[in-house]
């Protein structure tokens, strides 16, 4: 099967790779760009481990083809920490609140929550649960993931106790 050349920008870094059209964006990131932080937990769009941001919006990287990201900007978990490895506020909240155990689902949750916290609207408990119900975690029972994101939202001034009228 012939490959197609594509260019994508991942975490600000341009990549020129050649992929079979059927290769998922997740496999493209992992195998062609060498960015293995994006994990595959189900490859059919349910678990959310592969969640990345495409042009700023969360997507399941297993449900997009790499060729669809041609010319687009992608953000992955590798782009969150500073170049020297310093964790960003969300990552730090996960660390301090034990928001991960085996760590396999963590990149997907981090990217989903990163997007949520970058939205202009504040986050309340209902929205937190609604958005995070997108992804599956098998270790934490979600308690400390929710706690971590809550803590990050508070630290970023994005938390509200009462739902805004939408």
């Amino acid at each position: 099967m012939s490959k197609m050349p594509i260019r994508l920008t991942v975490n600000g870094v341009p990549h020129e790779v050649a992929v079979e059209p059927r290769r998922s964006l997740a496999d493209t990131l992992r195998d062609e760009c060498g960015l293995t932080g994006t994990h595959l937990g189900c490859e059919h769009g349910v678990c959310g481990a592969c969640t990345v941001l495409l042009e700023g919006e969360p997507v399941r990287a297993c449900l997009l083809f790499g060729v669809q990201a041609d010319g687009r900007a992608v953000r992955t978990v590798e782009g969150l920490a500073a170049a020297d490895g310093t964790l960003d506020p969300l990552q730090r909240a996960f660390w301090e609140n034990h928001g991960l155990q085996c760590g396999f689902c963590t990149p997907g949750f981090l990217m989903l929550a990163t997007w949520m916290l970058e939205q202009p609207e504040p986050v309340d408990e209902a929205r937190l649960r609604h958005v995070l119900s997108s992804n599956l975690c098998r270790c934490t029972g979600y308690q400390n993931i929710l706690k971590s994101v809550r803590a990050a939202a508070q630290a970023l001034g994005k938390w509200t106790e009462v739902a805004p009228v939408r």
Binding site: G45, G48, T51, L54, E57, P58, V59, R60, L63, L64, L112, W115, M116, V131, S133, S134, N135
Partner: peptide, 9 residues
Amino acid sequence: IAHAPIRTR
């Protein structure tokens, strides 16, 4: 309808 990362696509 599914979840936020599905609804974006």
